[in-house]
Design a protein around this nucleic acid. Structure first.
Length: 800
DNA sequence: CAGTGAGCGAGCTTCCGCTTGACTT
């Protein structure tokens, strides 16, 4: 099938539009709509539906399980306005064209549009394009198809399965967990937490082993005749004793070059950005969180600077490849250009869009100061992807030791042609990099049989490293590898598991560790001990105790859902549905029956989730000490609730965990509350409460903040703190109406009224003169705000 | 805001995947 030449398109098309009202073309994104309207011109009105316009009702799962899993769809409240507008436009227009994205979700959106706008899916025109260019769009318009119901059914199966898993599993947690927060579980989020949980346990179980790295230093003349030092490595020695023996055996040795190998090498540029790789590189190079990257990318997209930012495709349009080629040739010269098409490694990719790239390759940067660094990263990556390989020369020299049979190896790397490295080099994650690769240097020119002047030889103790904890971006990478989640959900998934308290993002301080060095110099061996910092991590994802116990629970009772390959397996079945080889309701039925049994079995037989761990026996009372989950989080407990005497409880610190806390650390926690003694007539006490550590004095409470430890803070520190915090509190106060219990306070967003637990913002015109407000005026403002509450979260729907 | 930790039970929570804004205690 060959496409018509473009110039014929309008001629073909016109007759059918004449005198009729405009055509309505619907796309998903409003930014796209604007561009396309310009391209298509007068005959088309282009509107956007802002993604899905219908979803399953929330009540009773939104599915009639007994009626073949029949879905009950509704237009969510926040989509009512869009739907109303689309209906009005559709009414006025001659014909409606559906141009949603070319993937499973896009197809379903088209079908929902048919249902809502009263269009017949059998006849309504459905078109797709992967790039927003005149050619692509006009060629798409010249070859419309209709909605593919098999693909729609695959989406419905996906949607319904996710609803079933989420809405059946979450209530199981509500029943079995004593914590009252709104817990949740789902096909994607629960596996994401599992990944974090398992990494943590690997790290906890890890035992570092050391070996001695042998490194010899020599001098030689470089190309300019200047003497330079270079190093060569020997075989690692397993222990300090072995290292010592080896260094002894080298005393008084001569070192001779016996062999030199020179091999060419090359480096190839990475593919253009997808959502996932953009998130990874922005995290590694710019330190951005996944959500920050997406926010900035969205802005760049909306202002027309880059193509769509939620994509799993590495493909560049012809237009983009040409533009890159031109830019590279003019900026760096012809030899730096090499046209490349990249293939997606990921099987789950749906490739409805292009890769993320600049709209105009000749724009090297953008005005917007927030988005500039991200834009430049995208620009460089796109350029590099169309540039020549970098050419290297790797040299490996073997060095003989005259006094023993061992051999040393010196290796070096020289860049012969920089190629794409002129613009861009991809960073690596910690876990993929090795020590050796990091320190390939340049070797001076050497010759076989050359005698090398010896400086010294070192045996340095090196420890194996545990795998690093995940960053947001490396978690996204892992999820993508497993085919779990989509470009539009990576950032929200991370927010969800953080919000639910399954995972925390924080830093970990390193610990000091001694390591040994043996140095052979002037025929003498010196033994040194030095210190290094190890295990420090920044902005990493840590599982909480909640995350760990929930993961264990779900793994025990729902191993199928928690399996890393569950999504991949059901994706194969969705594909079968999409191909028309499987009925979607049958597929869901096969999944649901055993799953429902698991749910019922769990509700009936599973114990409450406690995650209890015995730590030892309290010497004083002779009672058992355990760590476990309580109603308000992880805690330690002395004694049993069935004992005559009430058990003692203490909350774990943020950095402690049920799994790793020691008996001594647990006992330490029972030192609170501490009484520091009298100050201005009443005792100062320190404790940890619902909102963290605090000082109590004269029946007032002051937060302790992070820099002070309630276990160690002294009376000398606490006294002045009370005074300081008390005055700060007073300064925050503008006015107090004692009897009515109304306070007028100054906050970070300006002055506000506080009555009981509720806050009321002052109207703008009253903010300046807040101190002059009378009780009546204040009461009026409260009533006013109550009557017109500030719109924040969309209100609850009726009937659900 | 601030000491809790058992159990009862009303009424509530919850999923994933498309899309942007509205708006900050």
């Amino acid at each position: 099938m060959t496409g018509r030449p473009d110039q014929n398109f309008r001629a073909d098309f016109k007759p059918f539009l004449t005198k009729m009202a405009k055509n309505l073309l619907i796309v998903e994104s409003p930014a796209k709509a604007k561009t396309i309207e310009k391209i298509l011109g007068e005959d088309f009105e282009v509107k956007s539906c802002y993604g899905h316009i219908r979803d399953l009702e929330k009540g009773d799962m939104g599915i009639d399980i007994k009626d073949n899993y029949k879905p009950r769809y509704i237009v969510p409240e926040d989509k009512e306005k869009v739907v109303k507008e689309l209906k009005a436009s559709a009414k006025k227009s001659g014909e409606v064209w559906l141009a949603t994205d070319e993937d499973r979700e896009g197809e379903a959106i088209s079908w929902h549009l048919c249902e809502v706008l009263g269009l017949d899916p059998i006849t309504t025109k459905r078109i797709v394009f992967h790039e927003i260019t005149k050619t692509a769009i006009e060629s798409a318009v010249s070859r419309p198809r209709t909605v593919d119901m098999n693909l729609v059914n695959a989406q419905q199966a996906r949607r319904i399965l996710d609803r079933i898993v989420g809405f059946e599993l979450s209530p199981v947690l509500w029943r079995k967990m004593s914590m009252k927060n709104n817990l949740s579980a789902g096909r994607v989020q629960s596996v994401a937490v599992r990944i974090i949980a398992e990494r943590e346990r690997e790290i906890n179980a890890f035992v570092a082993v050391s070996a001695f790295k042998i490194e010899a230093f020599f001098t030689a003349k470089d190309v300019t005749g200047k003497a330079v030092t270079f190093s060569a490595e020997g075989k690692r020695q397993a222990s300090a004793e072995n290292a010592d023996v080896f260094l002894q055996s080298c005393v008084g040795a001569d070192y001779t070059v016996t062999d030199i190998q020179v091999k060419p090498g090359k480096k190839t540029p990475a593919a253009p950005f997808t959502t996932s790789t953009l998130q990874q590189e922005a995290s590694r190079k710019l330190g951005y969180s996944v959500s920050r990257t997406m926010l900035l990318a969205q802005k760049l997209y909306e202002s027309g600077k880059i193509t769509y930012m939620r994509t799993d495709s590495v493909n560049l349009s012809e237009l983009a490849m040409d533009a890159a080629s031109q830019q590279i040739r003019s900026q760096y010269g012809d030899k730096y250009h090499q046209a490349r098409k990249f293939k997606n490694k990921n099987e789950s990719a749906q490739e409805a869009h292009e890769a993320i790239r600049p709209t105009y390759m000749d724009a090297m940067t953008v005005e917007d100061s927030d988005g500039r660094r991200l834009y430049e990263l995208i620009w460089k990556r796109t350029m590099a992807s169309q540039m020549a390989d970098a050419e290297l020369e790797k040299t490996v020299a073997k060095i003989q030791i005259s006094t023993n049979k061992e051999e040393l190896t010196a290796s070096g790397e020289v860049l012969k042609f920089d190629g794409f490295l002129k613009v861009y080099r991809e960073d690596r994650d910690e876990e993929d990099s090795t020590e050796e690769e990091d320190q390939e240097g340049v070797l001076p020119p050497l010759a076989v049989r050359q005698q090398l002047p010896f400086k010294e030889m070192r045996a340095v103790e090196r420890f194996t490293r545990a795998l690093p904890r995940y960053t947001e971006a490396s978690l996204v990478k892992k999820l993508e590898e497993l085919g779990i989640g989509r470009p539009s959900t990576y950032a929200p998934t991370i927010s969800t598991i953080l919000k639910r308290g399954y995972v925390e993002k924080r830093d970990k301080e390193g610990v000091k560790r001694d390591f040994r060095i043996l140095v052979l110099k002037n025929d003498k061996i010196e033994k040194l001990q030095e210190q290094e910092n190890t295990g420090a991590e920044k902005s990493k994802l840590f599982p909480t105790d909640l995350g760990l116990v929930v993961t264990d629970f779900l793994k025990q009772y729902f191993d199928n859902i928690m399996d890393y390959h569950f999504t991949a397996r059901i994706e194969e079945e969705f594909d079968e549905v999409a191909q028309g080889r499987m009925i979607w309701s049958k597929m869901i039925d096969d999944f649901y029956n055993p799953f429902k049994k698991d749910v019922e079995n769990t509700i009936e037989n599973a114990e409450r989730i406690k995650g209890e761990r015995e730590l030892g026996v309290d010497a004083q009372s002779g009672k058992k000490v355990v760590a476990r989950m309580g109603r308000y989080g992880p805690m330690v407990q002395i004694g049993d609730v069935n004992d005559e005497e009430k058990p003692k409880f203490a909350k774990l610190k943020n950095t402690q965990s049920i799994e790793t806390i020691s008996f001594d650390e647990a006992m330490e926690l029972f030192r609170l509350p501490r009484n520091l003694g009298p100050f201005e007539g009443s005792d100062i006490t320190v404790n940890i409460g619902r909102f963290g550590p605090y000082i109590a004095h004269d029946s007032k409470f002051y937060s302790l903040g992070k820099e002070h430890d309630p276990y160690t803070i002294s009376f000398e520190t606490a006294g002045p703190m009370v005074v300081e915090k008390r005055t700060a509190k007073e300064q925050r106060t503008i006015k107090i109406f004692e009897k009515e219990k109304i306070q007028l306070l100054r906050g970070p967003y300006g002055p506000y009224i506080k009555q009981g637990l509720r806050n009321y913002k002052l109207p703008k015109e009253k903010q300046e003169t807040a101190a002059d407000l009378t009780l009546e005026e204040v009461k009026a403002i409260i009533e006013d705000v109550k009557a017109n509450p500030p719109k924040r979260v969309p209100r609850k729907k009726k009937g659900n």
